[in-house]
Design a binder for these strands. Structure first.
Lengths: 232, 232
DNA sequence: GATCGAATCGTACGCTGTACGAGTAGTCAC
DNA sequence: GTGACTACTCGTACAGCGTACGATTCGATC
């Protein structure tokens, strides 16, 4: 019986052993690994979106057969989980670990979070539905610690975290999906012109076309932080 | 050449003509119609989620062949669009059309919006990615009008609308997906216990388990409204 | 050489959305 | 009646999907 490795699947990644792949010919693919699978999956997701990721295509791109993937990965869902978390690494605020400016630290982390997801527009809509990987948990832990340091009581901590999470997720999902379909939006706005008696206000303000996404995000974030944490 | 009706597809629904179905025997299904398709699709989505809606199953449940659906509907995507919009009808705030309490009106509409989506947990994650139907546009128009009445300037209007939209969407998507997987959350929280040195803060606060979703939603909404619209 | 585990992959299966075109029933003109 | 036209239904078929299964290959160890 040959059982797949489950817990220690990424054995190869953590060791410092010399890769045996280097001994192969120059025109042969390196061996499969979790890392190669995940980075290639991210490439394909960036190129073709969530629905555009196919296991066969992923294998093709890696120079292997489709079923070889399943030695390293349980199923397609796990590919999503790994790709998602891999994209959300955070290196912390630039200057220091124990900055006095907790508000700046929170804003930096959340804006970086949003930016990371917008760089990979498939990631935002995936995030709420998938398992929490170490990078996601790391961000939550950092957020939690920073708010705690800022004086948010334990009783309010969870409410504050989830409010911020909700806001970031919602803003990014909307932004990303509207980004993907500029033509659709223009068409929808155009269609509204024919219905101006039904939707006069949103037609006049050209709601669907002209938006300051970044500014709106920052504005709402400020308001939330004003309310959630005591002023300094 | 037999072309499908495109614009006037729902002819049967708007007329007051007597339904010819009543002349049939009691044990035969009523004829297909957009309405029946949509309401049945909503039932199936409620029961099995987004991935659980299959065209064949939908047709079975309607007592017809799978391909008959395609006379009334272009493709499966349109079924999603119609089901989504059908679930988001809004009848307005209870008391009056021109209430003095604009803040109460906005909160009522947004909390009703969230409640409607939570009643159909598949709807929230669908909303940002799909076309805007008349009910969705109606809500946006109402929100727009109310904020305008409350004194929000034209320049700030779009920013305010999108901030609120983002917040509602994010809160509801998160809530709905966490709702769907209570066991997963418990398991994830349990797993965190084994990693308490890495994630001490969110482990101690039991972030993944114990949350006051409704309270957090209302709190954040209040903060946003405080900032977005002038105090009354 | 024999053995064994790790890793690869060809084949096949069940399921999906839907293109195609045949078939049916009702209506209207003559 | 009869033929034409429209509205609608649906059986069949097809390509593409995730992946179960089992055969195969390769390198290390005894």
């Amino acid at each position: 019986m040959t059982a797949k490795p489950k817990g220690a699947r990424n054995k190869r990644s953590q060791g410092t052993d010399v890769s045996p792949a280097s001994e192969k010919g120059p025109n042969s693919e390196p061996p499969l690994s979790l890392e190669r699978i995940v980075t290639t999956a991210v490439e394909l997701l960036d190129a073709h979106g969530v629905d555009g990721l196919k296991m066969r295509q992923l294998a093709d791109r890696l120079g292997s057969g489709a079923m070889s993937l399943y030695w390293h990965v349980d199923n397609k869902e796990q590919v999503f989980d790994l790709a998602l978390d891999s994209v959300l690494k955070y290196c912390g605020p630039p200057q220091s670990v124990q900055s006095q400016d907790w508000r700046g630290d929170v804003i930096h982390m959340l804006e970086d979070w949003r930016a990371s997801m917008l760089r990979h527009p498939w990631s935002a809509s995936l995030l709420p539905r998938r398992a929490l990987g170490p990078n996601i948990l790391g961000r939550l832990e950092l957020l939690s610690k920073t708010l705690s340091r800022a004086g948010v009581t334990d009783a309010d901590l969870n409410v504050a975290i989830w409010s911020l999470w909700n806001y970031v997720i919602g803003a990014t999902i909307t932004r990303a999906s509207f980004d993907l379909s500029d033509d659709d939006r223009a068409a929808a706005q155009q269609r509204l012109t024919g219905l101006s008696e039904q939707y006069p206000t949103i037609e006049r303000s050209r709601l669907l076309m002209d938006n300051d996404w970044d500014g709106a995000f920052r504005k709402g974030l400020d308001f939330l932080l004003d309310g959630l944490a005591p002023k300094q």
